[in-house]
Design a protein around this nucleic acid. Structure first.
Lengths: 138, 138
DNA sequence: CGGTATCCTTGGTGATACTG
DNA sequence: CAGTATCACCAAGGATACCG
C-alpha cells in the first residue's frame, strides 16, 4: 500500500546510511573523535604531567561535564585503546586514567586544534560581529 | 523556600556554566569545531580543487547529511569567517562555498586528524575487539 | 571516591512541503 | 538549484538517587 511509502523510504535511507558507515569506517571513527567531550578529555589528559589524571580531577578540570558523560566517554576511549584505566584499591578507591601512546598521538593533533582555537578566537569573534551586524542591518 | 532547592541549584549550575563559557571562550570555539558536520564539511572543502564546492556537490560528497544540517553548518562556518558564500545569479542559481585562509588553516589540522583516523583505524578496531571479548567473558 | 541505574528534558536531526 | 519553514521523533545528555 501507499501508506508505507514514507516508512519504506525512511528505512531505505537508514539502511543506506548504515551501509555507508560500514564501507567508510573512517567517517565513523572521525565522528567519534569529533565528539565534544572526547576533545576536551583527551587534551586535558595530554596536558597533564604524567598524561594521567584521577577521575575526579578530570571532572573538576572540565567544567560542565556530568559524571555520566565523563564515565561514558572514558569508557569508549578505553575501549578504543586511547586511554588505560588503573584502579588502586585503597580504602577510598583511586582510579587513574592515562593516555596510551595511541591516545597521545591523537592528543598531539587535538591540542594543536585547541591551540588553533586559542590563537584565532579573536579573529573568529571579529567575523561574528561583522556577520551579526550585517544581519541586523537588514 | 526549600521547595525550590532543586530548581535553584539548577539555575545556579547553568549560570556557572555560562560564566565558564565567557571566561573560557576557547572551549566554546573548540566545541564548535568538534562538531561532526564541521569536520566533514571542512575536510571535504579542503580536499576540493579550488577549496570551493557547490552546495549540492557538498550534499552528495557527504552521505547522511540533511539539507538542514548542511545549510545550518555552512551558515555557522560563514558566520565564523571560515568559509565564504558566493552566489552566481544565473538562471538556476549557483552557490559556491569556499574556504577562507582562516578556514584553510583549520582544514589542515582537521585533515591531519582525518589522516590519523585512517591510519589508526585498524589499531582502534583491534582494541575494540579485545575489549569486547574481555567484557563478554565476564 | 568512583561509579551505576533511573527518569526526564532538550534539542539535534530528518522528512516533507513550499518559495524564489 | 538553493534554500526556508514546519513538524515529529528519538537519542544524547543532565539531574537525581543509590551501590561498592
Amino acid at each position: 500500500m501507499a501508506t508505507s511509502t514514507a516508512a519504506a523510504r525512511r528505512e531505505e535511507a537508514r539502511f543506506a546510511y548504515d551501509a555507508f558507515l560500514k564501507e567508510c569506517p573512517t567517517g565513523q571513527l572521525l565522528a567519534r573523535i569529533s565528539d565534544k567531550w572526547v576533545g576536551l578529555i583527551v587534551s586535558a589528559l595530554g596536558e597533564a604531567d604524567d598524561r594521567s589524571m584521577r577521575y575526579s580531577d578530570l571532572g573538576r578540570k572540565i567544567p560542565g561535564v556530568s559524571q555520566k558523560m565523563l564515565t561514558q566517554t572514558l569508557r569508549s576511549l578505553e575501549r578504543d585503546g586511547l586511554v588505560t584505566r588503573h584502579v588502586t584499591p585503597t580504602v577510598p578507591v583511586r582510579v587513574d586514567y592515562r593516555l596510551t601512546d595511541l591516545g597521545s598521538s591523537l592528543g598531539c593533533l587535538l591540542s594543536s586544534v585547541k591551540i588553533w582555537a586559542e590563537n584565532h578566537f579573536d579573529e573568529v569573534s571579529a567575523h561574528r560581529d561583522t556577520y551579526d551586524r550585517a544581519a541586523a542591518a537588514s
